[in-house]
Design a protein around this nucleic acid. Structure first.
Lengths: 370, 370
DNA sequence: AGCATCAGTGAATCCCGCC
DNA sequence: AGGCGGGATTCACTGATGC
């Protein structure tokens, strides 16, 4: 146990508490922690099994801790832990909560109703999400983080310059592109399986803690799991408190954090600085009205024509497909760069569609620099 | 007024209704529209101006229609228009709602509580967002769209292949990178100012309508504003209904949409899914002599064989059944696409039986045209 | 050693028509 | 309405194996 800055209360710093998180928080002194990071159950409510196209089975998140009988039950659970969380938070403290479309709207409304002040939401944009295997929806490629202060009057911590530096000198945006947790970072249990179904990447916590805390600050995670929050807090010289119901997770987290050496920031953010030339789908030219559906494109040699369709495909003489596919078919070639092959007419001249792509890339680059 | 497909009810197609949107929707027949796109007021809590609009701040979103006394008032408003929206929606219809962190969590929770079935959320990632001038938060670089069907059982429309084509052959993700509405697309009022504080880009609506509707579908927008939804719906050969309280917006929208030229019909034919192709029973290949009874089929990996029987079933090692059933049994898989699994021999090479199905489908398509 | 190939996997509300 | 069965459906990356 350690003393907080006032010396009036004792806090179990750098330890993992067991039990229900609301009860555990209620046992802590009020107004005592600087930041709360919470990754609560998402209440996925998955129905049947899901197979990949190669017939392998997707490992569903069907753990008992993610099961709730109804929205009402989930709301009761949510409002209770949020109430307890707000109580232990210092007046100038803040909370981050991560969720998916299954639960994040209910959680967000509960955060507002509990008296927190919404500072914004951040999108974790996954570089390598799991695809949608049945072709029935979009690739579920993001999760949402809610950022809120204890009250409207809170003087919350935001390290603006650190975020700007992390983003190569331009203001950090509300969408963060980071990979999911895989490889050696992903904790395994004794049986060689993943230890936790929803382990978050350290890069995500690194960015949250760097943005919203200062060295020495106290970070509490009421759904500690395998302790990513604690591990990154230790790396970054923050104090931490974890709460976790499952003994197996607590043991893994404790061992993991014991191995962490502080202040070695290694290469946690390398992926964020990787900036390939942005891919511009031809369809975007159509959506943006630079090319009209129904408009005719010509090959550079003028021998072939095709019409643009609303989804960014071309339709020509008995051929339908992408700009590359239709070009290749016309030329009897194995492949074709549609960007340089196809042209549109402007003021009587043939202009390659690549000029429009360049225009879009210039816009994007200009906005990044300015 | 026009008749819907049943002829039983009249719908005011391709027109803008005035008045409160919930009341206007309640005056329409139930189960009558295919899609609702809604961009409701954001409940921006600008301090000191909750009850009195300050017209001197022309650039702020502080018009009187965007002010609400409290979350409770906003929730009442939200739940009322969502109830009316769900009523007019066809059983297989869907709704899209766009919002920011100020309102989207409350709206999302209300959508779930109203009985809609959450299909996912989509992030509009802005290429050119307005920076955060005070350096106290992240650049607010995204907005959230919620996609939900009328009920869990709805057979909602999702043009998977068109979305994939629009994204150059890879599955469309839940984050969409598109610019905000600027330049000539941004409507001006008579005084040279921007006509509407939150005009959405046509590219965003293009993608929503292409993903979630078919040509001829009826799209309703209860917060029509300056009519982006109607303009894009007209371009894409969809029918539309707008509801808007402000006469100035209605006038601007009507003039704007009148100027829109729809795309050619052929340009609206979008890449189709295989599921839409006519079903060909395997037995038809046998009947037509393309495969002889007694002929042996091989699995693609060459490890399994089965004999074709006269009724179009296969018989292999202790297994009898359809091409799919025998394939699944051999692979120990829950299911199997026999069309791609089984091959026959021609001139020493293994050819998938799907090639013969394609031959039949090509013939059928030829007959349909002639 | 180094490169090519293959197998595995990740917070997932993931089919549909016919009888 | 529930059961049956045809048959449609995946992206990025990691780590192991093979040559």
């Amino acid at each position: 146990m350690a003393k907080d800055h006032s010396g009036a209360h004792a806090l179990p710093l750098d330890t993992i508490l067991s039990g229900d998180c609301a009860a555990a928080m209620d046992a802590l002194p009020e107004n005592s922690v600087d930041l709360i990071f919470a990754d609560p159950p998402y209440n996925l409510q998955l129905k049947g099994e899901l197979h990949r196209p190669n017939n392998s089975l997707v490992d569903a998140v069907d753990d008992h801790w993610d099961q709730f009988d109804s929205f009402a039950a989930y709301d009761t659970f949510t409002r209770d832990w949020l109430r307890a969380a707000r109580r232990v938070l210092k007046p100038d403290g803040a909370i981050w909560v991560i969720g998916s479309y299954h639960n994040v709207f209910r959680v967000g409304a509960a955060i507002q109703d509990a008296g927190f002040w919404m500072l914004g939401d951040v999108i974790w944009r996954k570089t390598n999400p799991m695809p949608n295997f049945r072709g029935k929806r979009f690739t579920n490629a993001h999760e949402t983080l809610i950022w809120a202060s204890k009250s409207e009057k809170s003087k919350y911590t935001f390290n603006y310059e650190a975020m700007k530096a992390l983003n190569e000198g331009v203001q950090m945006r509300s969408d963060w592109t980071l990979p999911i947790c895989t490889g050696h970072e992903r904790l395994k249990n004794g049986r060689g399986e993943k230890a936790h179904p929803t382990q978050k990447p350290e890069s995500l916590l690194h960015r949250v803690l760097l943005a919203a805390t200062n060295p020495g600050d106290i970070v509490l995670d009421p759904f500690f799991g395998t302790g990513t929050t604690g591990a990154v807090a230790k790396m970054l010289g923050r104090r931490w408190i974890g709460i976790e119901r499952e003994a197996e997770y607590r043991d893994l987290a404790a061992a993991r954090i014991a191995d962490v050496r502080p202040y070695e920031k290694t290469a946690l953010e390398v992926t964020a600085s990787k900036r390939a030339e942005p891919r511009v789908p031809f369809g975007q030219l159509v959506e943006r009205g630079m090319i009209r559906p129904g408009e005719e494109l010509l090959s550079g040699n003028g021998r072939h024509r095709a019409k643009v369709r609303a989804d960014g495909t071309l339709s020509g003489d008995g051929v339908k497909g992408s700009i590359h596919q239709v070009g290749a078919a016309y030329e009897g070639a194995p492949s074709c760069n549609g960007w340089t092959y196809w042209h549109f007419k402007r003021e009587g001249r043939r202009v390659p569609i690549d000029a429009l792509r360049q225009q879009i890339r210039d816009e994007m680059a200009g906005k990044r620099l300015s």
